[in-house]
């Protein structure tokens, strides 16, 4: 369970995030959509603890996480897949995963290497390979695998589909849907409205640092059929 309330943050003088309210319940896959520069990655960095919140609060599973340092957040059940994947390129896949396993060791165990390999067979085949030698799709799978081995309750993913073949995206989304049905909360950040609407139950629309619209459960078809809304907030048709 993730609750964000009245969150503000930024880099320079004007805030980029201007008071966001977001709630994600267990077992939900919630979308966060918005055009380039809307502030999606900024929100992810604040949730990760890589950028300090200037106001408002972040709560994970009921405990206030707003000022918890980044490295301590996985212990509270939060896992993040950053926009650039941020794997340890000079280390092997196995070593990347081992570090996450260690960080998640004190949490209730939901994932182990055999299960990860079952979910992503391609990861299993590349265990001894340096991450910087993997393809984009393989890297994305390793990044997701690394996040899952933290044994999280809430996973936030910043545009996992970027640069991947549709087939790979489909495979990854399939896996994510399965995890939600086991009670995991997932925030899927997407620019591709087609992908977002096909896989999430509901979604927040972010524009210049504000939530300007909420697509409620079952509200995707209506949103997609309103060209005015789509072009206004997402700049696409």
């Amino acid at each position: 369970m993730l609750t964000v309330s009245n969150l503000t943050a930024g880099y320079g003088v004007p805030n980029i995030l201007q008071g966001l309210d977001i709630t994600v319940r267990p077992g939900e896959m919630v979308g966060l959509v918005g055009a380039n520069g809307a502030g999606k990655t900024t929100l992810v960095r604040v949730l990760a603890g890589l950028l300090p919140a200037r106001g408002g609060s972040i709560t994970i599973n009921g405990s206030d996480t707003t000022n918890v340092p980044a490295h301590a957040r996985p212990k509270l059940g939060l896992a993040i897949v950053l926009e650039n994947r941020n794997l340890f390129g000079e280390l092997t896949v196995a070593e990347n995963l081992r570090l996450a396993e260690r960080a998640g060791a004190n949490r209730p165990k939901k994932f182990d290497i055999p299960r990860i390999v079952e979910m992503f067979p391609a990861v299993g085949e590349k265990m001894a390979v340096r991450c910087d030698l993997l393809s984009g799709g393989q890297q994305q799978m390793v990044a997701i695998a690394r996040a899952l081995l933290l044994q999280p309750d809430v996973v936030i993913m910043d545009e996992p589909s970027t640069g991947l073949a549709p087939k790979v995206v489909k495979a990854i989304l399939e896996v994510l849907r399965g995890l939600c049905s086991e009670g995991m909360s997932i925030v899927l950040i997407e620019q591709n409205i087609g992908i977002a609407s096909s896989v999430t139950q509901r979604a927040y629309v972010l524009s210049t640092g504000r939530i300007v619209h909420h697509v409620a459960d079952g509200g995707w078809p209506a949103f997609l059929h309103d060209p005015h809304l789509v072009s206004r907030y997402l700049g696409q048709h």
Partner: peptide
């Protein structure tokens, strides 16, 4: 050792390390 590996990871990608629970 996990500690040695974490030391390398923290310098290779500090953001990736922090989100993997490593105190950079």
């Amino acid at each position: 050792t996990d500690f040695g590996l974490a030391m390398m990871a923290a310098s290779i990608d500090p953001d990736g390390a922090a989100t993997t629970g490593i105190n950079v």
